[in-house]
Design a protein around this nucleic acid. Structure first.
Lengths: 125, 125
DNA sequence: TTACTATATCGCTACATAGCGATAAAATCA
DNA sequence: TGATTTTATCGCTATGTAGCGATATAGTAA
């Protein structure tokens, strides 16, 4: 393995770590249907404004969201909706895990997965 | 948003965090083409045996890999190859980022993306 | 200018964990 | 039985960062 591969691995790991924080997932989920400014997100998601702003900066630095300034407000939006495919794949995995536990998978899919793609799996149980 | 959604978000975040460490990505990459035991992985990937074992336990606890015991050896394998689709999607994203920087994207794709699916992109260099 | 609003940044604490060496636990072999 | 091998766990340090309140920065309005 070459040297560059290690750097690539680090970049990929850093990208994944952007999705490894619940608040950031909630932010991405809130931006699913359009841009929001920091105040709206803070009110909608809870937590301090400083925290939301910092997470937005993190997501923007990695390139998942983009920033648009209007007056004193900062509006953020999803850059590439394909990131939600990530959530889909993970939800299937996580859903299979949670299936054997207490939490229902449906609530999970409803909250994170995009639409009713139908092809999910027969809801046996 | 309901209570369950927070738990789901946490589960998804925890799942992503499993991929947010370079060593774990290297482990998954090493398991791509078949199962390996701890000693083989330690020799191949470097680092201490304790560290490799701990990462394997983490990945197994989340359900990404499975363990098979033979004698004193413990062989680990990928449970669901679809996890590499995750890497694909991330590699595209990260590749687009690195494209504008020093690191070449090709090395990244070579190391993390699955096989020569052909459709990847002309290897201009 | 001052006052107000919205966002970003600073300073800080608390917590999680990656990494290591040492050791325990378990299976195999002499 | 003891010795060896392989893996898992323990104890520990160092580092990263999520979260908060306070403050700085920047734009708007008077």
């Amino acid at each position: 393995m070459e040297q560059l591969d290690d750097r690539a691995m680090e970049a990929v790991a850093m990208f994944f770590s952007a999705f490894a924080v619940p608040m950031r997932l909630r932010i991405l989920n809130a931006l699913r249907h359009g841009e929001r400014n920091v105040g709206e997100l803070t009110a909608e998601l809870g937590g301090s404004q400083a925290n939301v702003s910092k997470h937005l900066a993190t997501l923007a630095r990695i390139g998942v969201i983009a920033k648009r300034t209007s007056g004193t407000s900062a509006y953020y939006r999803i850059v590439d909706p394909r990131i939600f495919q990530l959530c889909d794949l993970v939800c299937v995995q996580v859903g299979n895990r949670l299936e054997q536990e207490v939490v229902t998978r449906d609530a999970l899919l409803r909250s994170v997965a995009p639409g009713p793609s139908g092809k999910r799996r027969a809801a046996r149980r």
